[in-house]
Amino acid sequence: MSLALHVRDLEVHAPNGRVLVRARQLDVAPGETVGLRGPSGAGKSSLLYALAGLQARMSGAVVWGDTDLTPLNDHTRARFRRQYMGMIFQDFLLFEELGALNNASLAAAFGAPAERHQIRHTARTLLQRLGLTDLGRTVESFSGGERQRVAVARALSNNPKVILADEPTASLDRAAADTLIADLTRMARDEGRTLVVVSHDDSLLSQLDRVLQVVDGELKQETRHV
């Protein structure tokens, strides 16, 4: 159900050639939950997006399972994300004019025809598990917590093996953040999904198996909670 991650000699470059972030070695076991923390501008999100295959200029190796994303072209990386990854963002990035279900099942719009029904079914089930009932209501009327739950359902609707989250609690109040942390870690662990989270939120990070530091564009030490 989950994928291991092996990063070797990863360097992400800016268009001017400057190194944005460097990670000499990173190994994440299948189903492991890992946090990335560090000062603002240290390169956490750049590293996360490199793990997602969204960085155009990167060298080294980012191997999920037995697939190295680095040499793949844009199209193949997108297909990998579509098949194996779910992504969550700080400010939700929902289509405000669509309902909760249509947002959560966004992948059905571009997924294979045979998968569309399953994606919508999964999205509906996830939204209900996350406590959202009015699935047709447009999300523009939702609270921050509700929006992020829709975003979580969207990330999981294609039943991914990996979840990548960028500051998922940053736009939420404490109560909503705690609910989200509980939901996210539960859904990752219940299905044995590998979870990599960029966050400053200690409550969130304390729930993860490991926390790695990114400082001055370099992946540094690690803290084990378990």
């Binding site: 997602a52 969204l54 844009d74 199209h75 997108a78 297909r79 990998f80 994300r81 579509r82 098949q83 990854m85 992504m87 963002f89 990035l93 289509f95 966004l106 992948a107 719009a109 571009f110 969207r154 294609n158």
Partner: peptide
């Protein structure tokens, strides 16, 4: 463009 970028981040093909 952010929402279009989101689609790509979620794995949508360029043609979509």
């Amino acid at each position: 463009s952010r929402r279009l970028a989101l689609l790509r981040a979620l794995g949508a093909p360029r043609r979509f």
